[in-house]
């Protein structure tokens, strides 16, 4: 069981998520290339993971009992980097180096470049297999750590992912928790038009997984889902998180053309003012 999520902590997490979104916009603007939609959509979940769920020590990223957080859809790494910086893995200043030469913050995460990213990713569909390997090793060593594998919906087109799903079901890997960013977009368009993956829940159930569906922007519901997953003993669990790509920036929301581009100066300004006023609900603190 995770530590209970009190009102105050929940408020802290929601505010943290907003700060992360702001830093994301600034980081992407500075980088001049990179992905916007996926990172904004997964910000609430990353916040919940790094600031409430994960058992980890940012100053000792290779601690052997840490929970593993594998990001299979590596292109959304900007949100991971920002969350890691806020959690204390490295100075927030360093976010400015994203995608630049000689940086630890590679355009797609690289294991040996930055401690704490667990694995190199970007090429889709192979994160779940690697997570299965880490979960198997945990079992062999009688370790208590959990392996969280974040995946995208688009990468469910790939055969490799389903090979891993089948194997995880066979081996009853209850220390493995998959989290799917179900945002309905990929590069060429909407997932159900490019390559339909529904019914997704039933597919995983047929592969012997426990499946939970949540609103990916409801931190409380996500924490509950992780607690439920921890209580499942005979199966791996997958949490299908329904998210809005570009969440928090109105002109990016649900628009697949924001998959792989950063905001320009004007767009960033607009995005930041929306985020700082919570979409107009409060007056800006940065006036």
């Amino acid at each position: 069981m995770l530590e209970p999520l009190h009102e105050k902590k929940l408020k802290f997490l929601e505010e943290k998520a907003n700060q992360i979104r702001e830093d994301l916009i600034e980081t992407l603007l500075e980088a001049g290339s990179g992905h916007s939609a996926g990172p904004l959509g997964m910000t609430d979940i990353f916040t919940a993971l790094y600031f409430h769920i994960l058992n980890h020590h940012p100053r000792n990223p290779n601690w052997e009992d840490r929970d593993r957080l594998v990001l299979s859809n590596g292109h959304i790494c900007p949100v991971r980097y920002v969350a890691m910086a806020h959690a204390g893995y490295f100075p927030i200043e360093e976010l400015k180096t994203l995608r630049k030469i000689n940086s630890r913050l590679q355009g797609h995460p690289h294991r040996t470049a930055l401690p704490g990213v667990e694995t190199t990713s970007g090429p889709l569909g192979s994160g779940l297999s690697q997570s299965v390997g880490m979960a198997l090793a945990g079992k062999l060593d009688n370790k208590k750590y959990k392996v969280f594998c974040l995946m995208s919906d688009g990468e469910h087109n790939s055969g490799n992912l389903w090979e891993a799903a089948m194997f995880a079901g066979k081996n009853k890997l209850n220390n493995l928790i998959g989290v799917i960013d179900r945002n309905n977009i990929q590069i060429d368009g909407f997932t159900e038009e490019i390559m339909p993956i529904e019914p997704l829940k039933e597919k995983y159930e047929a592969f012997n997984w426990h499946v939970i569906e949540v609103d990916g922007h409801n931190i409380e519901a996500f924490v509950d889902a992780v607690n439920e997953a921890h209580a499942i003993y005979e199966k791996p669990t997958v949490i299908i998180a329904h998210t809005i790509p570009g969440k928090g920036v109105s002109f990016m929301e649900n628009d697949y053309t924001w998959h792989g581009k950063p905001p320009d100066k004007e767009e960033a300004k607009k995005a930041l003012s929306e985020l700082r006023t919570l979409g107009g609900k409060i007056e800006s603190e940065h006036k």
Binding site: R99, K100, Q106, H108, H110, G122
Partner: peptide, 8 residues
């Protein structure tokens, strides 16, 4: 290919 990094 540039900013995407070595994976790409």
């Amino acid at each position: 290919t540039g900013p995407d990094g070595a994976t790409h």
